[in-house]
Amino acid sequence: MPRKHSHPRATRRHRWRHVQASIRDTSILLKEFRSPLLWFSVAIIGGGMLYDFLSRLVNEPVYSLAESIYIVLTSTFLQPPNREFPHHIALQLFHFFMPIVGIIVLAQGLADFGSLLFNRKARNKEWEMAVASTLNKHIILVGLGHLGYRVALKLHEMGETLAIIELNSNADTINEARELGIPVIHDDATRPSVLEAANIGRARAIIMASQNDAMNLQIALKARSLNPKIQVVVRIFDDEFAHALQEQFGFIALSATEMAAPVFAAAAAGVDVTNPISIEGQLLSLARLTISEQAAFANRTIGFVEDNYHLNVVLLRHDHQSEMHPTDKSPLRPGDVIAVLGGPEQLQLLLHDNGQ
């Protein structure tokens, strides 16, 4: 079983994304309610100017235009005036008329704004989109079925930033994914606007994990058109069709015989990994990786990697020199390239400890 890792840095990123999402969500709400706010401002400022003009006309002047605006504003919210109640009927009418203006123009808008601002669960879709809009160099997962959920878990374990699009609102996995802090957008990923809501322009990879080959291909093509540089990993049940997609479009197309979730996760993370082969019921893949400075096995040996990760290192490349089947005592340095053969779980753990 792979070891579990905590990601305090990922937790901090998650909290910061929620702060950013709150700011963005509030700004969107302010834009939606800009008309009531604009008309209210016009009514208060215009009313203040008219009050100032009338007060001078009837010989009950106030000290300044600012005070006139303040008087109108306090009257709107039924606050007592900070000076003697005016004697002239024209000025008195302001204290009775402005509360009506406030109720008509602003009260309903403020009530709706407050309800939507503090009850984001009622606007779940908009909130998830706001969170997704803060992501950068993330992975988009389309489909949260059995395979999709396992892929999401693997990517989460690898510390990857993830956004999910799922059409079926009754999927039990949606709440479980959200509990991990992953934004889940309930919508149709075949619509370009939905992909844009998941911030596809700044995503580095997208995985299509639904059971519909035609829909997976449709989404893959739209994703590539919206972001030509995005890495596309698509689930295709037909082996020949999968290989044809790889050759024609450069997609990483994994067929029904290659449905291991860690393979999908590794492919989306940008790792050079082959399609798995089954040997006596065990899936094995060959992966190539460059040892990073942060790797847990940097400055260790081949034997350390093989003993602790339960896989085989079949090639070591150092300083432009390749060594096939290196010995257990061969050192591993940052910048070296190794090719390893192992099961999906073992490869996923090795890649995680390499910072991928």
Rank of each mutant, 00 (worst) to 15 (best):
214 A>K: 12
17 R>N: 13
212 N>P: 12
103 I>V: 11
131 V>W: 05
191 R>V: 11
340 V>F: 03
289 L>D: 08
251 F>N: 03
192 P>A: 05
338 I>C: 07
344 P>Y: 00
120 R>G: 05
181 G>E: 04
327 T>P: 03
85 F>R: 15
94 F>K: 07
74 T>C: 02
5 H>C: 13
345 E>G: 09
21 A>E: 03
243 H>S: 13
314 V>R: 11
25 D>C: 10
243 H>Q: 06
202 R>P: 03
145 G>S: 07
339 A>C: 05
175 N>T: 06
218 Q>G: 07
2 P>L: 12
58 V>Q: 05
113 F>M: 02
39 W>E: 02
208 M>P: 01
316 L>E: 12
337 V>Q: 13
272 D>V: 06
163 A>C: 08
326 P>M: 04
129 M>T: 07
98 M>C: 03
133 S>T: 12
36 P>K: 06
255 S>K: 02
248 Q>W: 03
235 R>I: 05
69 I>G: 12
36 P>C: 06
105 V>M: 09
344 P>I: 11
319 D>F: 10
78 L>K: 02
244 A>K: 08
115 S>W: 12
27 S>E: 07
282 Q>L: 13
78 L>E: 05
197 A>F: 04
163 A>F: 10
329 K>A: 14
234 V>S: 14
44 I>M: 11
169 S>W: 01
351 L>T: 01
138 H>I: 01
30 L>I: 07
216 N>S: 07
230 I>V: 11
124 N>M: 08
87 H>A: 08
333 R>Q: 09
87 H>C: 03
328 D>C: 03
257 T>K: 14
158 M>K: 06
258 E>G: 11
292 S>I: 00
193 S>G: 00
355 G>I: 00
88 H>C: 01
99 P>A: 05
36 P>G: 11
320 H>I: 06
319 D>G: 03
297 F>E: 02
196 E>I: 10
180 L>G: 04
281 G>S: 00
41 S>D: 01
112 D>W: 07
232 V>K: 02
75 S>L: 05
288 R>W: 04
115 S>F: 14
86 P>E: 04
337 V>M: 15
197 A>V: 00
86 P>I: 15
287 A>R: 02
250 G>L: 10
334 P>G: 04
311 L>H: 01
14 H>V: 10
279 I>H: 12
140 I>S: 06
167 L>F: 15
212 N>W: 07
286 L>E: 12
209 A>Y: 09
22 S>H: 09
178 R>C: 04
133 S>N: 00
21 A>L: 00
122 A>P: 04
252 I>D: 06
208 M>G: 11
242 A>M: 11
320 H>A: 11
179 E>L: 14
49 M>R: 08
232 V>W: 08
247 E>V: 15
138 H>P: 09
229 K>H: 08
212 N>I: 04
134 T>F: 01
198 A>T: 12
124 N>G: 04
327 T>M: 13
157 E>P: 02
239 D>S: 11
200 I>Y: 01
91 L>Q: 07
322 S>A: 06
105 V>W: 09
84 E>F: 09
348 Q>E: 14
283 L>I: 00
256 A>S: 14
